[in-house]
Design a protein around this nucleic acid. Structure first.
Length: 814
DNA sequence: TGACCACAGTTTTTT
DNA sequence: ACTGTGGTCA
């Protein structure tokens, strides 16, 4: 290689790097190292998504130009000089020419596969890519493991003996199947809990054990218990197969099987995906690892991003070993650590680092930051859970008066049950809050019912969902009838629906035959009108013709009203689907989307309330003020983790995740006694608290330095007197540049006045009574064209959105 | 076939 | 404390 070529290579690298000067050194290395296996260890708040996005943009712009010594075209002195100048002083105008000179096989969008775990993450990735790359980004496969696999299976699953219109069973569907099997096998649900059977099956699938493999394994151990479960597993697979259904594990499992068994399909995808990126690699299970390595085997360009310290999903199969042994699995892998944190203050990071250092099975990373030292981490020991809740709400109210928005606060807990005491205190003090998690929209019975109708219309042979809705609303088709029909279905090999249709031919169904047939006709009639209608009109038709809506209207109690509203809500998510997915606006397309998309409640950025959620749900989020409650032995770490090192380390990682959510201020609280599951028990402070260096904390009411009497008597107002390190105003504090700043409001902020024709003036925090929904608290008021959208948290029926003018006559301010 | 009562379980959650 | 479920009875 001559001198000029050497100069060219250096100049090329520098010129490409010049496009990424806004990144720090490590981030830029992650962007430019395009070839071969790469492990990106991205600590909390280290700008991981930014690296992913820029990495993809680099691939599309320059291909492997930044990471190869190839020189595709002869080099001229002029070109080298030009690049050297560009690298020294980049001029955006020149970029096209730079791209022309530096690119080595620029990557096509459809050659990139970017996999995430959640739809939310996938969408965020897509949005940011589109923002950076424009239309081009549309063709990048940015998807969750499951949606990518469904896409692959919809093309080729017939090679595995399913048909391409397979349905997807969610966890509830799977449970239903297990329950049915247990009944058939005369097995007791108490000795064989559905949950643990399901997890045993999931585990077997994760290690690619067929029921036969499973049997072989258990036969040698002679474990009767396991052999029963094995039988259930066997039947479970059979039933899903005959229903042409896949559960969530199957989606990955069969994709792996397909790729393993069918060379053509395998080679197609291995060739197609030149570059593979996998986010949150620490959360992958064994099957997902296999899938990734199968796909990457073609070009070998696999980049995994993750943080072993944030692996908190062991209970659902995540195998931390995948990330720990990446370098061993992929020869020649490079590792880049992103350790600069842009989120938290020094004190918060020091505290979090010290806690996580107590773990052994980890890669080892130490986060550092340029941010200010900030306030010390605050630990508050409260008397009991309601004292704790009052303290938290009091601190948040004090901060509010100083100009901190409600939404700048998050309260994190280990288990959902802890939210009760908090909600009570927040309600009583009129502080708006939102609980994340709990019952999901798509888990509500009425939603499942309506979706089941749609599934059955889409595919009448879907026995499972048919059974769910055949008698809802009541059509006088009872359990006995269904039981008999089911037996016939098994005997004849027909689906339940077919048996219903032919019920006149079977004496044992004679009595209910007319009811059954009018039901099947109802379904078929709807099915035939489906192709001729807009999906949204069809939805209304289904709601009406099935009598489901009428059933709820006739009941007319608060509960039914909520259900009706949810059904209407579902129609708006159909509209959302139609907006986003113009390519496949069919019923089948919608059902596919819905099956993998459980998380439609986009967190409303505009409503201003304190967020309450589990530490698990908080992963990936950040808040200026974070309260972690329930820092007690037995709760966090939980009793179930005691004495199990692996579990304890997982709890510690959860603690690390929770602590690193905080940007400015971290408050940890524990109670000296707590009522949980109806029992009050004394609690010792969590071991994690003592793992924080004393220099980084300020512990209020540490158990051995203060009596408990005081807390008992004036816990209601105690929080106003507690010292809180407010020695600096939040405006003086240095915060990293981020979009979160934009919604900070001045301290004089008052909620927008409600407008409109009524004399009712409401603002967040007001208590109201509604003639139908009972008493509640106004969470937000948003003016809207002469009217206002109210969001009210009712004590009995949950949070509702109402239009002020329409609701005014039924509302009264307390 | 539907209503009522007793009883058990109760981490964390996505797809 | 609370909720959901399964079994029993009218």
């Amino acid at each position: 290689m001559d001198q000029l070529e050497k100069r060219f290579l250096t100049a090329r690298k520098n010129a490409i790097a010049a496009d990424y000067l806004h990144l720090n050194d490590m981030q830029r290395r992650g962007v430019l190292a395009t070839e071969g296996p790469l492990l990106l260890l991205a600590g909390a708040g280290s700008g991981k998504t930014t690296v992913l996005i820029n990495r993809i943009s680099n691939l599309l712009r320059y291909g492997r130009g930044s990471d190869t010594d190839e020189i595709p075209v002869p080099v001229s002195e002029d070109a080298v000089v030009f690049l050297e100048q560009y690298a020294a002083a980049p001029d955006p105008e020149q970029r096209p020419l730079v791209q022309f000179l530096c690119a080595v096989e620029p990557v096509k969008p459809w050659e990139v596969l970017a996999i995430t775990f959640t739809n939310k993450a996938a969408n965020e990735l897509k949005d940011r890519l589109e923002h950076m790359l424009g239309e081009n980004a549309q063709d990048i496969w940015a998807a969750t493991f499951h949606s990518a696999c469904v896409r692959i299976l919809r093309r080729d699953i017939d090679k595995l003996g399913f048909t391409r219109d397979f349905t997807i069973y969610d966890t509830d569907d799977s449970k239903r199947v297990i329950k049915d099997i247990l009944k058939d096998l005369n097995m007791d649900e108490k000795s064989f809990p559905v949950r643990s059977i399901l997890s045993a099956i999931s585990k077997a699938k994760d290690s690619m054990q067929t029921p036969a493999d499973f049997e072989r394994m258990t036969a040698s151990s002679g474990d009767w218990f396991k052999s029963r479960i094995c039988r259930v597993y066997e039947l479970y697979c059979e039933r899903l197969r005959s229903a042409n259904a896949l559960d969530f594990d199957d989606i990955i499992l069969y994709t792996v099987k397909l790729l393993q068994s069918d060379p053509l399909t395998r080679e197609y995808y291995q060739h197609k995906f030149r570059y593979i990126l996998i986010d949150e690699y620490q959360d992958t299970n064994h099957l997902q690892y296999l899938l990734a390595s199968l796909l990457a085997a073609g070009h070998g360009n696999i980049c995994v991003v993750g943080d072993d310290d944030q692996s908190i999903y062991r209970f659902r199969g995540a195998d931390i070993e995948n990330i720990l042994s990446f370098e061993r699995e992929y020869k020649g892998a490079r590792t880049i650590r992103l350790e600069q944190n842009y989120r938290s203050t020094q004190n918060i990071l020091d505290a979090a680092n010290s806690v996580i250092r107590h773990n052994h099975g980890r890669k080892g990373k130490t986060l550092w930051t340029d941010n200010v030292r900030g306030d010390k981490v605050l630990i508050k020991t409260a008397f009991n859970e309601s004292d704790e809740a009052n303290y938290v709400v009091g601190q948040i109210m004090m901060a509010y008066r100083r100009g901190v928005s409600w939404r700048d606060n998050a309260v994190l807990y280990r288990i959902n049950a802890q939210s009760n005491a908090l909600e009570y205190a927040f309600k009583r003090n009129g502080v708006p809050y939102t609980v994340v998690g709990g019952t999901k929209f798509f888990d509500r019975a009425e939603i499942k019912d309506i979706l089941s109708y749609l599934c059955v219309i889409n595919n009448p042979d879907d026995d499972l969902r048919l059974r769910r809705i055949v008698n809802v609303p009541s059509r006088k088709i009872g359990a006995a009838t269904i039981e008999r029909a089911e037996q016939l279905a098994v005997q004849t090999g027909m689906s339940l629906f077919q048996v219903f249709q032919n019920s006149r031919d079977y004496p044992e169904l004679k009595n209910s035959s007319s009811k059954l047939i009018s039901f099947t006709e109802l379904i078929l009639q709807m099915k035939s009108s489906c192709p001729n209608m807009e999906l949204i009109e069809f939805y209304d038709l289904v709601c009406e013709k099935t009598g489901y809506v009428r059933m709820l209207e006739e009941k007319n109690d608060p509960d039914s009203r909520t259900r009706l509203e949810n059904i209407r809500e579902l129609s708006s998510s159909i509209m959302g689907f139609l907006e986003n997915q113009p390519d496949n606006p069919t019923l089948a397309g919608f059902l596919d989307e819905i099956a993998l998309y459980t998380d439609l409640d986009e967190t409303n950025d505009r409503d201003n309330s304190v967020t309450m959620m589990t530490m698990h749900s908080a992963k990936g989020l950040e808040f200026p003020y974070v309260y972690v409650v329930g820092m007690e032995e037995g709760l966090f770490p939980g009793n179930k983790a005691m004495g199990d090192d692996e579990e304890l380390e997982e709890e510690r990682r959860i603690c690390y995740v929770a602590m690193t959510r905080a940007k400015e201020m971290l408050i940890l609280t524990n109670a000296r006694q707590r009522m949980l599951f109806g029992r009050t028990t004394p609690c010792a402070p969590s071991r994690f608290l003592s793992e924080i260096p004393e220099g980084n904390v300020n512990w209020i009411g540490k158990p051995d330095t203060r009596g408990s009497r005081q807390d008992l008597t004036d816990n209601r107002d105690a929080h106003y007197d507690d010292s809180f390190p407010w020695h600096r105003t939040s405006q003086e504090r240095r915060r990293p540049a981020s979009s979160e700043q934009s919604f900070r409001r001045p301290s004089s902020w008052t909620p927008p006045a409600s407008s409109g024709k009524t004399s009712l003036h409401l603002q967040p925090g007001d208590s109201v009574t509604h003639t139908a929904f009972g008493s509640g608290m106004v969470i937000s008021v948003r003016p809207m064209g002469g009217d206002a959208l109210l969001e009210i948290a009712f004590d009995q029926v949950g949070t509702k959105k109402l239009m002020l003018n329409a609701a005014a006559s039924r509302l009264q301010k307390k």
